[in-house]
């Protein structure tokens, strides 16, 4: 019971600390405009045709990065199927023996 209380206090303290850091980060000066940022804001929608700048970046300028994410998902699905199927094989062998 005692250690449970201590854990709760620690968790609350950690959350408050995180909130403090976030507050600092949000109140601080926003990143000053760099060349890349200015270019993207100015030409992003025109060059890719997408009004949504986020989409313009992740499917226009960084499409290769998106391709990597797609491959990650493909590998994850493949892994799930592989491990589930191998466990089933093991179950069947256990039943047979």
């Amino acid at each position: 019971m005692k250690s449970g209380h201590l854990l709760t206090v620690l968790e609350v303290a950690l959350l408050l600390l995180t909130a403090l850091f976030l507050l600092q980060a949000l109140q601080g000066p926003h990143p000053e405009s760099s060349d890349v940022r200015g270019y993207l804001v100015e030409n992003g929608s025109h060059e890719t045709g997408a009004l949504n700048l986020v989409t313009a970046i992740y499917l226009g300028y960084r499409a290769f990065d998106t391709m990597g994410e797609i491959v990650v998902l493909l590998v994850a699905v493949t892994g799930v199927i592989y491990f589930a199927a191998s466990r089933e094989r093991k179950d069947e062998e256990d039943h047979d023996s």
């Binding site: 045709g49 009004l51 949504n52 986020v54 499917l59």
Partner: peptide
């Protein structure tokens, strides 16, 4: 997704 928040993922 290209006009409003959203997209493939």
């Amino acid at each position: 997704g290209h006009m409003s928040p959203g997209g493939g993922f």
